[in-house]
């Protein structure tokens, strides 16, 4: 089954073309990695899938589980199972992680969540990610290190149980041990999700792909995919840089 299908997508931010006839098909239970130099539109892709109003779709279509979501509100996309782990998760002072997640989960399930069940689920996710047990009572990402913020994104993923997961540079800010923990948690979720899940991971480095093993690796240049391969392509990019792909694309 096709999970996410992007057809000839053109996107502008601040009146500047960022995605140019971008295409990708992601099936259920597939992991796709996207790599590319800075400024080629990788994060814009992540944002437009989630529905950020920064992005103006000028043409093309994003189809999720068979339905066009071009005009779907951000919160509706989330409730329907799309999740974006952000490159720079923001800090919101005064709103605790547990309060935020409980509101989010209640919104998704369209019913009030029992406190006991919620706390149990949250504590389990916190333990899996090796986070401090005080984390639920702290303000969202306040005083969190870069690595803790990324772990918090994965805790949120585990609580909300999405089907289409977009990971925008989830590896940045993570130390070696944390990278392993985050990678393992994402793969555990992916492998044990009975309803099926798909992952689109945006990264600069192949190290995270040792844990989150992609079926496909795509290279983006100038707002579109110019080359597709397997994990070996990621290793080749690390070794040779992007120049050889730029040469091929010319």
């Amino acid at each position: 089954m096709l999970m996410l299908n992007i057809n000839d997508l053109n996107v502008k931010i601040n009146n500047q073309n960022i995605l140019n006839n971008f295409n990708i098909n992601i099936n259920n239970n597939e992991i796709h990695a996207i790599m590319g130099p800075n400024g080629v539109g990788k994060s814009t892709l992540a944002k437009v899938i989630m529905g950020s109003d920064e992005c103006e779709i000028t043409s093309g279509e994003i189809i999720y589980k068979g339905l066009s979501i071009n005009k779907m509100a951000v919160e509706e996309r989330s409730r329907n199972g799309i999740f974006l782990a952000m490159q720079s998760p923001i800090e919101i002072d005064g709103v605790t992680n547990s309060e935020f997640l409980r509101v989010a989960l209640s919104s998704k399930l369209n019913k009030n969540i029992g406190l006991y069940d919620f706390i149990k689920k949250l504590e389990s996710a916190i333990s899996d990610l090796n986070m401090n047990e005080n984390m639920p009572h702290r303000s969202i990402n306040k005083g969190f290190s870069g690595g803790e913020r990324k772990k918090n994104e994965i805790i949120q993923m585990k609580i909300l149980e999405p089907a289409m997961i977009v990971l925008d540079e989830i590896d940045s800010g993570l130390d070696v041990d944390s990278l392993k923990i985050v990678g393992k948690n994402i793969m555990d979720y992916f492998n044990n999700n009975f309803n099926g899940a798909s992952i689109l991971i945006i990264t600069h480095y192949p190290r995270i792909l040792e844990y989150i093993k992609p079926n496909f690796v795509h290279i983006m240049l100038d707002g579109k995919i110019v080359k597709t391969g397997t994990y070996e392509l990621a290793l080749e990019v690390e070794k040779r840089g992007y120049d050889f792909i730029k040469d091929e694309a010319r």
Binding site: M50, G51, S52, D53, A73, V74, E75, R77, S78, R79, F83, L84, M86, P89, I90, I92, F100, L101, V103, A104, L105, S107, K108, Q156, L160
Partner: peptide
């Protein structure tokens, strides 16, 4: 955007 991206 961050809060809404979690379904809120």
């Amino acid at each position: 955007f961050y809060l809404k991206s979690r379904g809120v």
